[in-house]
Design a protein around this nucleic acid. Structure first.
Length: 103
DNA sequence: AGATTGACCGTGT
DNA sequence: GACACGGCCAATC
């Protein structure tokens, strides 16, 4: 089980209306410092149908990029549609941050 | 196997 | 508040 594989599995567990930071996903994957690797994995997203990479945002809730649609714009729209509170181009991390497998 | 890059993060100016 | 720099680790060339 490679690191990216774990990342995918974790991201797939993110429920609608919630978001997780790259750092958080990386932490669940095993290393909190490999947030960049998480982003790289999302970029080469092998299963866009199953992996909601749009629910993964930066630590401050801002969006860095998106490999589909119009980029961050599509990501923004998707998040807003899912019920995530998005304001000023940033998601409300305080309210919509996914707490992980434990609630 | 070695070097470079990156959908990052934190701190300093 | 915006911009610059460093570090960290995995992925890619």
């Amino acid at each position: 089980m490679s690191f990216t594989a774990r990342v995918y599995e974790i991201v797939k567990q993110i429920p609608p209306g919630k978001v997780a930071t790259y750092q958080y996903v990386a932490a669940l994957a095993g290393n909190p410092k490999v947030a960049r690797a998480v982003g790289a994995a999302m970029r080469h997203n092998p299963d866009a149908s199953s992996i909601p990479c749009h629910r993964v945002v930066a630590a401050d809730g801002s969006m860095r990029g998106y490999a589909f649609g119009k980029g961050t714009s599509t990501k923004h729209a998707l998040l807003a549609k899912e019920g995530v509170i998005v304001q000023n181009g940033r998601v409300d991390v305080v309210r919509c941050h996914w707490e992980g497998f434990v609630l």
